[in-house]
């Protein structure tokens, strides 16, 4: 997989979370993910087509997403519910949009599908393409989240 496809998603993730949820986000070291078990409690998956076909996923630990969505909506959310699922989908949409803008400026145009959301302990993430899954962990003061980027070989 072309690693140049990954960096825009890291930049976009930091920008989206800091702008919409007012939290500091630190990116950890990317790694090759071998299994399909989510590193967290709620995930949005979004398909991408264009210069390369693939998917991205964004998975939040419960504590992290409750803080993020509470900050976004200006009210305290105490459990993973429909509001959380909706917000994770929209955050993923925004991350995709920002990353695609950066990639577009590099001449790599991608189109995005509408994200789908899965929640629950130890849920699986299906990426639909057979390429390597690059996982990037992110830390905040209120828990962690991980994005996975997977493009076909």
């Amino acid at each position: 997989m072309d690693v140049k496809l990954v960096n825009p998603f890291i930049n976009a993730t930091i920008n989206v979370l800091e702008t919409m949820a007012f939290i500091d986000v630190k990116a950890g070291k990317p790694y090759l993910k071998k299994d399909s078990v989510a590193v967290g409690d709620v995930t949005a998956v979004l398909g991408l087509t264009g210069v390369a076909n693939g998917t991205i996923s964004v998975t939040f630990e419960e504590k992290c997403i409750l803080t993020v969505v509470s900050n976004m909506l200006g009210e305290t959310i105490k459990e993973i519910n429909n509001d959380i699922a909706d917000a994770v989908g929209e955050l993923t949409n925004m991350i995709s949009g920002q990353a695609r803008r950066e990639l577009g400026e590099m001449g790599r145009v991608l189109k995005a599908a509408i994200p789908s959301v899965i929640a629950g302990k130890n849920h699986s993430i299906i990426h639909y393409t057979t390429g390597p899954k690059i996982a990037i962990p992110f830390g905040t003061d209120n828990g962690n989240f991980t994005i996975e980027v997977c493009f076909e070989r």
Partner: peptide, 12 residues
């Protein structure tokens, strides 16, 4: 907006 979260943010 198809996302209720975004409608709520904009309405806020």
């Amino acid at each position: 907006d198809d996302f209720a979260t975004m409608r709520r943010i904009l309405k806020n």
